[in-house]
């Protein structure tokens, strides 16, 4: 089957979805990735609201469970994620100035922050499991484990993304087209963004 010739007017419209229009507003990263980020935010949002409303009806239970958590580790994890995000921004800035290869080290720094987060969280889980805590222990522990683990999986996925970007930067692949770099960076920031609510919600506010 042979396709009929394309219409010129429509060809002009058939550009990519990445919103690289000449007008000033510009989304940093791919539209499809941003759609995905919005879906993720919605998922976390629903989970956060569910936590808050479940707590409304079981205040003592939630406060007692929360008191057993180590707030300092939570804060340290927050700082690690924030630092990771800032380092990713530095890598993006470096790439924009045409120093892709040199800015790979910023990406490596961001990955180190992510890995430390994973290590701290893993030790937190190890302690919790050693204490016999499971999803069925209490409503609070169900939420604590579910929310943090769902986030934990996102950190791991984010680390995979960062590793790919690090490799790409080392080969200076984003000089012409920063779209993959910016898309991956936006995803990593999203992982940070949800933790900024998760931390006070689960660890601090009582």
């Amino acid at each position: 089957m042979r396709p009929p010739p394309a219409l010129p007017r429509l060809r002009a419209m058939g550009h990519d979805t990445t919103l690289t229009a000449d007008s000033t507003p510009r989304l940093s990263g791919d539209l499809a990735v941003w759609f995905f980020i919005l879906a993720e935010l919605l998922a976390f949002g629903v989970f956060f609201a569910a936590y808050a409303f479940a707590r409304m009806r079981h205040r003592e239970l939630f406060d007692a469970g929360q008191a057993l958590l180590d707030r300092n580790t939570g804060a340290l994890n927050t700082i690690l994620l924030l630092s990771g995000s800032a380092l990713v921004v530095r890598a993006v800035q470096g790439n924009q100035r045409g120093e892709g290869r040199r800015s790979a080290r910023w990406m490596l720094g961001a990955m180190a922050c992510g890995l430390l987060f994973v290590g701290l969280k893993a030790s937190e889980y190890a302690a919790a499991f050693a204490a016999g805590i499971s999803l069925s222990s209490s409503l609070f522990h169900m939420f604590y484990l579910s929310l943090t683990f769902f986030h934990f999986m996102h950190v791991i996925l984010g680390l995979v993304v960062l590793a790919v970007l690090w490799q790409g930067l080392r080969q200076d692949r984003y000089r012409q087209d920063a779209n993959p770099l910016e898309s991956g960076a936006a995803y990593w920031h999203m992982v940070d963004l949800v933790w900024l609510i998760l931390f006070p919600l689960v660890y601090v506010i009582h």
């Binding site: 009929p4 429509l10 060809r11 419209m13 058939g14 759609f35 919605l42 998922a43 629903v46």
Partner: peptide
């Protein structure tokens, strides 16, 4: 929580189908 989010991929599919047809480069 998770099944409440199941409409999202279907919504994406709808947006996807209409978007692609609007951007069509040929009249099949």
């Amino acid at each position: 929580v998770f099944s409440a989010l199941e409409p999202i991929p279907f919504f994406a599919m709808t947006i996807f189908a209409f978007n692609m047809v609007n951007r069509r480069r040929r009249e099949h």
